[in-house]
Simulated assay, not measured.
Amino acid sequence: MYDICTIGHITLDKVVTTQSVNFMPGGTSFYFSKAIQKFDVDYRLITAVAAAELPIVEQLQKEGIEITTLPSEHTVFFENIYSQNQDHREQNVLYKADPFTKEVALLPNIDAQIYHLGPLLSDDISVELLKALAQKGMVSLDIQGFLRFVKNQKVHYTDWVDKDEALAHVSILKANEYEMEVITGQKEIRAGALYLAEMGVKEVIITLGSKGSVIYTEGNFYEIPAFKPKQVVDATGCGDTYMAGYLLKKIKGGNPQEAGEFGAAMATIKIQSSGPFSGDLQQVENILNSTLHEKIFPWEELASSISQS
């Protein structure tokens, strides 16, 4: 029995920032796996790549990550373009990979307490697979991929047509404020979180980039600060790193506030350098215990709406 099993495609990423252009592996499954690998947790990744990208998988296995690799005609190819404001990006997709279907749930040796799903595009992971996994353990979902569709290689966002059927089977859901608005029609964070909870989600996590995040569960809101980084280099994978920290702390018995702050500290370490998270437990604890890193809480309007709930 694994603590956490992630299901999602590894991608080829071209990351363009104001400082550099880099080519690297990416995707929720890659950034999540790299972030969690140095911590004490029983973990497995299920991914799918083309034969040409198998060396990426082999390198992760050399680093100690247990992986089940499924065949795919193509590997997902993303281009992420960031302006000076790293909270926003432009995305293009050149290739798509084969989807994960219900049969994945029947693979041997993938029993886990938490299944973290990282779809990158709307047809990556079938609803049938999500529901099958929910019968085996808790489903954690990064919603972004289910809201994306590709037209002329550009990534566009639209509401998730299967949300009524699927969300009742999701225990933990992460969305940023824009994704929350797309799926709920709500601009105000509290209203969006309540909407998702009413759809059946047990724990709703709304990330707000440099403004922190908010968690809603069991009738309570938790306001999670962002820790101001020493420098902003590359925001790609910060949400995945946050979720790695959140689920890791949750597995260890942490409450939502502790889990959120642990994830936020990991995201701060990640954003300070290009590529995936490369820190360790001591660095995370240093940020959590430091008075040097300014805590940035969600905006006053959000704090007011929480206090009035």
Rank of each mutant, 00 (worst) to 15 (best):
T207M: 04
P229V: 06
H116R: 01
K295G: 11
S274Y: 14
L302Y: 05
V15F: 05
I183Q: 10
Y178T: 15
P55G: 05
L208S: 06
P119C: 07
N152D: 15
E58M: 12
G118V: 08
K252M: 10
G245M: 06
A48H: 03
A35S: 15
I81D: 04
K131D: 09
V201C: 00
Q186I: 03
R89T: 09
G245S: 10
Y95L: 15
I251M: 12
Y242M: 05
V139I: 09
H169N: 14
A134I: 05
Q37E: 14
S304Y: 13
I81R: 14
Q135V: 02
S278Y: 02
Q113R: 15
V150W: 03
G8L: 11
M243K: 01
F23I: 14
F297E: 07
A267T: 07
V182K: 10
G279P: 08
I46K: 01
R89Q: 15
L45I: 06
A168D: 12
M1P: 09
Y115C: 03
V232T: 12
A244Y: 10
Q135L: 13
E261M: 14
D13H: 01
F100I: 00
K154D: 09
L94I: 11
I189R: 02
L117R: 05
S29H: 02
K34N: 13
V155K: 00
A191V: 12
E181G: 02
I10P: 03
D240F: 07
P256N: 09
D159H: 09
S126Q: 08
Q308V: 13
R44D: 00
L106M: 11
G245R: 02
G200H: 06
D124L: 08
E261D: 08
F77Y: 15
M24I: 11
I65W: 08
V127S: 15
I287S: 10
S29P: 02
G237I: 03
E165T: 10
T158Q: 15
N92V: 02
H156M: 11
N286G: 04
P99Q: 08
F77S: 12
Y2F: 15
N152I: 00
E66C: 07
R89Y: 04
D98G: 06
N176G: 10
E218T: 12
A193D: 05
A48L: 03
E177D: 15
V21G: 10
A303G: 09
L54W: 01
T69N: 12
A168V: 13
F39Y: 14
L107D: 09
I206T: 12
I67C: 04
L94N: 07
L70T: 05
L173F: 08
N80P: 02
T6N: 10
K249H: 03
E181F: 02
L281G: 00
H116L: 08
Y43C: 07
